[in-house]
Design a protein around this nucleic acid. Structure first.
Lengths: 341, 341
DNA sequence: ATGAAAGCGCTAACAG
DNA sequence: CTGTTAGCGCTTTCAT
């Protein structure tokens, strides 16, 4: 049976207010009374109704997190970081996902607001379409903080990786290993991350006075595979290295290369971006640019909580560094990672 | 500014009730009135307060899902299946995770209840410790449905895979390929899944009159690696096949085998369980027992919704089949999977 | 230190 | 078809 505060009060012959105060550790209750009430509450396994509390307090202690895709561990790892951070402060996370669809994103934003979230933490899948919606939310008094993907049309607070620097690091590494004809498998340019990685590649190639080859290769393994097949089908191979904007497309490209009899890294060096779990397991362990997803989540959660307490603070962007993880696919001297010790 | 029903009513000079009815498409509102109200609501971007609605209706249209671990894509895929299924019926999911800790699990159950979830969908991480808590929840009128892991002490409704049959399939396949000295890398026996897989192995081995070798190898890659190292360190190798209760431990074992110079599948055949994403990417693509995670989620969601509408229905267990995915690690004639088309 | 009254935003039940 | 009253479970404010 679900018990209410009033029932407890009735059982103990005190007022609901006294029970409420005792249970929350509020002042104005005698020590003995508090003891009695808390003990009884535990005994009957009383659970406060947080909907009711949220209604009257106008604060649910729930943060709404909206990500593009539940099946991408990148987002989940970030959410895990947020979760750990906010749990310590008594907040919970209501997780929603947009399936990378602008309309769904809009409707999910609405639902989260409806459910009374205190702030909205969002990796926006449709920066173009939904910027104004986010602005509305912000205006209505609910803090909005962005992560990983920028929304250019407006200024929001957020936490992002230095995708540009990560890309330059990767490409410079390839050049340092003597590669000169480097292809970039670009992601979807509508996302700031893909765009920044592309720009990083271009900046380094330009500075080194090397010719740029850019192929749109999306996010996935299949599109990476197809992009590489297209490149290979052009006849005489005209590249000795590949920098992919996303690990899955790097892995797809790797498969296409190996199937075509091209040796990696001897003939073609390969670097990805993201350090997904499979990256170290694929047939040629993948060199890649790693991002600390937990750090992303933690920083974002802190930013959101800060905005909750200081709603008037100016928009703040936090930029997190990336790290190049060198494995075999880029042509480093071969050494087994797991043979350490 | 967040608007309320009453404000809308004031703006339009009608009663709150009329607005409420119009917005929910309830009967008893003239067509023109409905039009006017809906239009105005859209214009001012009204979002109903679902906390308030939930409070009065005693039904939040939120299902609480509790999983052991957010970073395991197995659970997330199942949640995705649930999400798709319940969204169509206007329900949302409040996701919580226990970090595989009994105490956290208990407290999360409490929080979910506090947040007014209509049902609890749980993959219990501590079947022993928390069975009574779940029973209490059930008694309090909130349907409890289990998934993947059984809780033996009580009878609950739930959806499970046929782990026993999956294991027999795997072991029989190895025997069919001529292997006779088959080792089982067992998971944690406290979980019904690990236990069922072990029993499946034992049943087949017993029936075939083959000697059993069982090694505890936990869930992870590292523990699988160590278990295999221990086996190999015993000197003369005494097995020609390995059936691991979990893919990660199979992958760890694979690494140990290859590092020790044992060829897979020639000298030792290997079968895992779970078909994790990396399974097909590892250096020797892994034969494994696959589970349809989305099917799990969908079946569970349906079961939960059904229990919501028929609270008195007797406990029902749904058992889902598994499927053996044959790749190279078990010694099937080598053929590239990806060369199709 | 304790209690009574009022109301958060919404809907069920009844009235007109 | 529309409005009024009451109350979901809780907390704030003001009494006592």
């Amino acid at each position: 049976m679900k018990r209410t505060l009033k029932q407890l009060a009735g059982d103990l012959n005190v007022s609901a207010m006294t029970v409420s105060r005792a249970l929350r550790g509020d002042v104005g209750v005698s020590e003995t009374m508090r003891q009695t009430i808390q003990e009884y509450a535990r005994e009957v396994n009383y659970q406060p109704n947080l909907l009711a509390r949220g209604l009257v307090m106008q604060r649910s202690h729930v943060l709404g997190v909206l990500i593009p895709d539940l099946s991408d561990s990148f987002w989940l790892d970030a959410v895990l970081g947020m979760e750990r951070t906010v749990r310590a402060e008594g907040y919970h996370i209501l997780l929603a996902h947009s399936s990378d669809t602008a309309a769904v994103e809009r409707s999910e934003i609405g639902t989260l607001i409806s459910r009374g979230v205190d702030a909205l933490l969002i990796a926006c899948c449709a920066p173009g379409d939904n910027a104004s919606v986010l602005a509305d939310v912000q205006t209505s008094g609910i803090p909005v903080v962005l992560f990983d993907r920028h929304v250019t049309a407006q200024t929001f607070s957020g936490v992002f990786f230095d995708d540009f620097a990560g890309a330059t690091q990767a490409v410079e590494h390839l050049i340092g290993l003597g590669r000169t004809r480097i292809v970039h498998l670009a992601g979807d340019e509508r996302f700031s991350t893909s765009h920044a990685r592309l720009e990083g590649y271009r900046a380094v190639m330009k500075k080194a006075d090397l010719p740029e080859t850019i192929v749109e290769a999306g996010f996935g393994e299949e599109s990476g595979f197809r992009a590489m097949r297209t490149l290979l089908d052009r006849g005489q191979r005209q590249f000795d290295a590949v920098f992919a904007a996303h690990d899955p497309s790097a892995i797809g490209a790797l498969r296409a290369l190996l199937e075509a009899g091209v040796s990696v890294p001897e003939e073609v060096a390969l670097v990805g971006f993201g350090n997904i779990r499979c990256a170290e397991h694929v047939s040629v362990p993948l060199t890649t640019v790693a991002q600390s997803r937990h750090a992303l989540g933690e920083a974002l959660a802190r930013l959101a909580l800060d905005r909750l307490h200081h709603p008037a603070a100016p928009p703040t962007e936090i930029v997190l560094p990336t790290q190049l993880i060198v494995r075999q696919s880029c042509g480093y001297p071969l050494r087994s990672e797991s043979s350490v010790q």
